Amino acid sequence: MASSPPAFIYVVVVACRMSPQTDFDVDFDGTVAVVTGASGALGSAVVDRFRTAGATVCAVDVVAPDDEDSLLEPDSGVQFYEADLTDEGDVERLVSAIVDDHDRIDHLCNIAGTWRGGDPIEDTDLEAFDLLLNVNLKTAFLAAKHALPHLQETSGSIVSVSARSSLEGGEGDGPYRITKAGIRLLTETLAAENRGTVRANCVMPSVIDTPMNREMMPDADHDSWVEPTEIADVIAFLCSEGAAVTSGAAVPVYGEA
Protein backbone atom coordinates (compact mmCIF):
# COMPACT_ATOMS: atom_id res chain seq x y z
CA MET A 1 0.00 0.00 0.00
CA ALA A 2 1.37 3.40 -0.93
CA SER A 3 2.27 5.58 2.00
CA SER A 4 0.45 8.86 2.54
CA PRO A 5 2.20 12.04 1.36
CA PRO A 6 4.43 13.80 3.88
CA ALA A 7 2.81 16.49 5.96
CA PHE A 8 5.56 18.94 5.11
CA ILE A 9 7.60 19.38 1.96
CA TYR A 10 10.78 21.47 1.86
CA VAL A 11 11.07 23.44 -1.36
CA VAL A 12 14.32 24.80 -2.73
CA VAL A 13 13.80 28.20 -4.33
CA VAL A 14 16.03 29.59 -7.06
CA ALA A 15 17.55 32.93 -6.05
CA CYS A 16 17.14 36.09 -8.06
CA ARG A 17 18.35 39.63 -7.56
CA MET A 18 15.81 42.41 -7.14
CA SER A 19 16.86 45.90 -8.14
CA PRO A 20 17.03 48.50 -5.36
CA GLN A 21 14.55 50.46 -7.47
CA THR A 22 12.05 47.59 -7.56
CA ASP A 23 8.57 48.98 -6.95
CA PHE A 24 5.67 46.58 -6.61
CA ASP A 25 2.29 47.04 -5.05
CA VAL A 26 1.90 45.71 -1.51
CA ASP A 27 -1.08 47.01 0.41
CA PHE A 28 -0.82 46.64 4.18
CA ASP A 29 -3.41 49.29 4.96
CA GLY A 30 -5.31 48.41 8.14
CA THR A 31 -2.73 45.86 9.30
CA VAL A 32 -0.30 45.95 12.22
CA ALA A 33 3.29 44.81 11.69
CA VAL A 34 5.77 44.07 14.48
CA VAL A 35 9.41 44.43 13.43
CA THR A 36 12.12 43.30 15.85
CA GLY A 37 15.70 44.52 15.55
CA ALA A 38 14.19 47.71 14.15
CA SER A 39 17.16 49.95 14.92
CA GLY A 40 19.59 47.98 12.75
CA ALA A 41 20.31 48.30 9.04
CA LEU A 42 17.94 45.55 7.90
CA GLY A 43 15.34 46.19 10.60
CA SER A 44 15.05 49.88 9.77
CA ALA A 45 14.69 49.04 6.06
CA VAL A 46 11.86 46.60 6.87
CA VAL A 47 10.18 49.23 9.07
CA ASP A 48 10.29 51.73 6.21
CA ARG A 49 8.98 49.20 3.66
CA PHE A 50 5.96 48.24 5.75
CA ARG A 51 5.23 51.83 6.72
CA THR A 52 5.33 52.87 3.06
CA ALA A 53 2.89 50.05 2.26
CA GLY A 54 0.39 51.47 4.77
CA ALA A 55 0.92 49.25 7.80
CA THR A 56 0.88 50.47 11.36
CA VAL A 57 4.44 49.53 12.31
CA CYS A 58 5.51 48.64 15.84
CA ALA A 59 9.31 48.92 15.88
CA VAL A 60 11.01 46.87 18.60
CA ASP A 61 14.62 47.01 19.78
CA VAL A 62 16.84 47.41 22.83
CA VAL A 63 18.46 50.37 21.04
CA ALA A 64 16.23 53.45 21.02
CA PRO A 65 15.88 55.56 17.84
CA ASP A 66 17.71 58.51 19.46
CA ASP A 67 20.75 56.35 20.25
CA GLU A 68 23.83 57.08 18.13
CA ASP A 69 23.98 53.41 17.11
CA SER A 70 20.42 53.38 15.76
CA LEU A 71 19.66 53.55 12.05
CA LEU A 72 15.95 54.04 12.75
CA GLU A 73 14.99 57.70 12.45
CA PRO A 74 13.36 59.12 15.62
CA ASP A 75 10.68 60.78 13.46
CA SER A 76 10.08 57.74 11.22
CA GLY A 77 6.32 57.82 11.82
CA VAL A 78 6.21 54.47 13.63
CA GLN A 79 5.63 53.55 17.25
CA PHE A 80 8.77 52.38 19.04
CA TYR A 81 8.76 49.78 21.81
CA GLU A 82 11.91 49.13 23.80
CA ALA A 83 12.15 45.50 24.90
CA ASP A 84 14.67 42.77 25.68
CA LEU A 85 13.49 39.97 23.41
CA THR A 86 15.67 37.41 25.22
CA ASP A 87 13.54 37.89 28.37
CA GLU A 88 10.21 36.06 28.16
CA GLY A 89 8.52 38.36 30.67
CA ASP A 90 9.56 41.38 28.64
CA VAL A 91 8.27 39.78 25.42
CA GLU A 92 4.95 38.94 27.06
CA ARG A 93 4.59 42.53 28.24
CA LEU A 94 5.58 43.83 24.80
CA VAL A 95 2.95 41.82 22.94
CA SER A 96 0.28 42.79 25.47
CA ALA A 97 1.18 46.47 25.06
CA ILE A 98 1.03 46.26 21.25
CA VAL A 99 -2.36 44.54 21.30
CA ASP A 100 -3.65 47.04 23.87
CA ASP A 101 -2.50 49.90 21.63
CA HIS A 102 -3.56 48.51 18.25
CA ASP A 103 -6.04 45.65 18.91
CA ARG A 104 -4.32 43.19 16.57
CA ILE A 105 -1.11 41.81 15.07
CA ASP A 106 -1.01 40.82 11.39
CA HIS A 107 2.70 40.46 10.62
CA LEU A 108 5.71 39.50 12.73
CA CYS A 109 9.11 40.20 11.19
CA ASN A 110 11.86 38.59 13.27
CA ILE A 111 14.83 40.70 12.20
CA ALA A 112 16.74 40.86 15.50
CA GLY A 113 20.08 39.11 15.19
CA THR A 114 23.84 39.44 15.27
CA TRP A 115 26.96 37.89 13.75
CA ARG A 116 30.12 36.70 15.42
CA GLY A 117 32.99 34.82 13.90
CA GLY A 118 35.39 33.23 16.28
CA ASP A 119 37.14 30.00 17.07
CA PRO A 120 36.76 26.29 16.41
CA ILE A 121 34.13 24.62 18.58
CA GLU A 122 36.67 23.31 21.11
CA ASP A 123 37.94 26.85 21.66
CA THR A 124 34.57 28.63 21.66
CA ASP A 125 33.59 30.26 24.94
CA LEU A 126 30.14 29.34 26.20
CA GLU A 127 29.42 33.06 26.59
CA ALA A 128 29.92 33.60 22.84
CA PHE A 129 27.69 30.63 21.99
CA ASP A 130 24.97 31.80 24.39
CA LEU A 131 25.02 35.30 22.89
CA LEU A 132 24.33 34.00 19.39
CA LEU A 133 21.78 31.46 20.59
CA ASN A 134 19.90 34.13 22.55
CA VAL A 135 19.99 36.97 20.02
CA ASN A 136 19.53 34.96 16.82
CA LEU A 137 17.19 32.15 17.86
CA LYS A 138 15.67 32.75 21.28
CA THR A 139 14.33 36.18 20.28
CA ALA A 140 12.52 34.72 17.27
CA PHE A 141 11.16 31.82 19.32
CA LEU A 142 9.80 34.05 22.09
CA ALA A 143 8.35 36.66 19.72
CA ALA A 144 6.59 33.95 17.70
CA LYS A 145 5.37 32.13 20.82
CA HIS A 146 3.65 35.19 22.28
CA ALA A 147 2.47 36.75 19.01
CA LEU A 148 0.97 33.53 17.64
CA PRO A 149 -2.41 33.69 19.45
CA HIS A 150 -2.99 37.12 17.89
CA LEU A 151 -1.63 36.11 14.47
CA GLN A 152 -3.98 33.14 14.50
CA GLU A 153 -6.92 35.51 14.97
CA THR A 154 -5.91 37.58 11.92
CA SER A 155 -4.59 34.70 9.74
CA GLY A 156 -1.30 36.56 9.83
CA SER A 157 2.26 35.90 8.77
CA ILE A 158 5.74 35.48 10.24
CA VAL A 159 8.99 36.10 8.40
CA SER A 160 12.32 35.44 10.11
CA VAL A 161 15.94 35.88 9.03
CA SER A 162 18.13 32.82 8.54
CA ALA A 163 21.36 32.90 6.50
CA ARG A 164 22.93 31.35 3.44
CA SER A 165 25.71 29.97 5.64
CA SER A 166 23.15 27.99 7.66
CA LEU A 167 22.94 25.48 4.81
CA GLU A 168 26.28 23.88 5.68
CA GLY A 169 28.92 23.74 8.36
CA GLY A 170 31.98 25.91 8.13
CA GLU A 171 35.14 26.97 9.92
CA GLY A 172 35.27 29.71 12.50
CA ASP A 173 31.62 30.74 12.74
CA GLY A 174 29.95 27.47 13.70
CA PRO A 175 27.70 28.89 16.45
CA TYR A 176 26.34 31.52 14.06
CA ARG A 177 25.55 28.91 11.42
CA ILE A 178 23.94 26.66 14.03
CA THR A 179 21.60 29.36 15.30
CA LYS A 180 20.60 30.42 11.79
CA ALA A 181 19.89 26.79 10.88
CA GLY A 182 17.65 26.80 13.94
CA ILE A 183 15.68 29.66 12.40
CA ARG A 184 14.94 27.50 9.35
CA LEU A 185 13.72 24.64 11.53
CA LEU A 186 11.67 27.01 13.67
CA THR A 187 10.09 28.34 10.47
CA GLU A 188 9.24 24.86 9.20
CA THR A 189 7.76 23.96 12.61
CA LEU A 190 5.63 27.11 12.76
CA ALA A 191 4.40 26.46 9.22
CA ALA A 192 3.50 22.83 9.98
CA GLU A 193 1.77 23.62 13.26
CA ASN A 194 -0.24 26.52 11.82
CA ARG A 195 -1.06 25.20 8.35
CA GLY A 196 -4.02 27.07 6.91
CA THR A 197 -3.92 29.76 9.60
CA VAL A 198 -0.57 31.52 10.04
CA ARG A 199 2.04 31.48 7.29
CA ALA A 200 5.70 31.27 8.34
CA ASN A 201 8.67 31.78 6.02
CA CYS A 202 12.27 32.90 6.32
CA VAL A 203 14.84 34.59 4.13
CA MET A 204 18.47 33.53 3.76
CA PRO A 205 20.75 36.50 3.02
CA SER A 206 24.35 36.20 1.97
CA VAL A 207 26.40 39.22 3.13
CA ILE A 208 24.17 42.24 3.73
CA ASP A 209 25.54 45.58 2.61
CA THR A 210 25.63 47.46 5.91
CA PRO A 211 28.03 50.10 7.28
CA MET A 212 29.29 47.61 9.89
CA ASN A 213 30.00 44.90 7.31
CA ARG A 214 31.83 47.37 5.07
CA GLU A 215 33.94 48.42 8.04
CA MET A 216 34.77 44.80 8.93
CA MET A 217 35.42 43.76 5.30
CA PRO A 218 36.76 46.85 3.50
CA ASP A 219 38.43 44.86 0.70
CA ALA A 220 35.44 42.67 -0.17
CA ASP A 221 33.42 42.93 -3.37
CA HIS A 222 30.66 45.14 -2.00
CA ASP A 223 28.82 45.16 -5.34
CA SER A 224 28.00 41.48 -4.86
CA TRP A 225 26.37 42.05 -1.48
CA VAL A 226 22.62 42.32 -1.04
CA GLU A 227 21.03 45.64 -0.02
CA PRO A 228 18.80 45.82 3.07
CA THR A 229 16.07 47.42 0.94
CA GLU A 230 16.13 44.43 -1.43
CA ILE A 231 15.66 42.00 1.45
CA ALA A 232 12.90 44.21 2.86
CA ASP A 233 11.08 43.93 -0.48
CA VAL A 234 11.17 40.12 -0.28
CA ILE A 235 9.99 40.13 3.34
CA ALA A 236 7.10 42.41 2.41
CA PHE A 237 6.15 40.12 -0.46
CA LEU A 238 6.19 37.05 1.81
CA CYS A 239 3.76 38.83 4.15
CA SER A 240 1.50 39.92 1.29
CA GLU A 241 -1.45 38.27 -0.42
CA GLY A 242 0.85 37.59 -3.36
CA ALA A 243 2.50 34.87 -1.25
CA ALA A 244 -0.75 33.53 0.20
CA VAL A 245 0.09 29.97 -0.91
CA THR A 246 3.65 30.05 0.44
CA SER A 247 4.51 28.79 3.92
CA GLY A 248 7.53 26.96 5.29
CA ALA A 249 9.88 28.33 2.64
CA ALA A 250 13.51 29.36 3.11
CA VAL A 251 14.02 31.98 0.39
CA PRO A 252 17.53 32.82 -0.86
CA VAL A 253 18.33 36.54 -1.00
CA TYR A 254 21.92 36.41 -2.16
CA GLY A 255 22.32 39.48 -4.36
CA GLU A 256 25.06 38.69 -6.88
CA ALA A 257 27.09 36.57 -4.44
Rank of each mutant, 00 (worst) to 15 (best):
P65Q: 06
L108V: 00
V226A: 10
L108H: 01
V62T: 15
E241C: 01
L186T: 01
A181S: 13
P175I: 13
R214H: 14
V99G: 00
G113K: 02
L151P: 08
S44W: 09
Q152F: 01
M1R: 02
D173T: 15
L133G: 10
I178A: 08
A59V: 08
T86G: 01
R214W: 13
S166V: 02
M217G: 02
G248A: 04
S160C: 03
W115L: 13
I105V: 12
A200V: 00
A147N: 00
S70R: 04
D27L: 01
S224Q: 10
L71P: 03
Q152H: 05
E241P: 02
T187E: 14
P6T: 06
A243L: 02
E68F: 09
D106F: 08
D29E: 14
A232R: 02
P211A: 14
E82P: 12
E168R: 10
M212W: 15
A38Y: 07
D173K: 15
G118N: 12
P218E: 15
I183S: 12
H102T: 01
E215I: 15
A45R: 02
V226P: 06
D90K: 13
L131C: 12
I111V: 14
A163P: 08
I9M: 14
A220T: 11
S39C: 07
M217Q: 02
G89E: 05
T154L: 03
P149L: 07
L94H: 01
A181C: 07
A257L: 14
L108E: 00
S247A: 09
V35F: 09
F50N: 03
E171Q: 07
D61H: 04
A33S: 12
P20L: 11
N134A: 13
C58G: 06
E168M: 13
D100Y: 12
S19K: 00
D101G: 14
D100P: 12
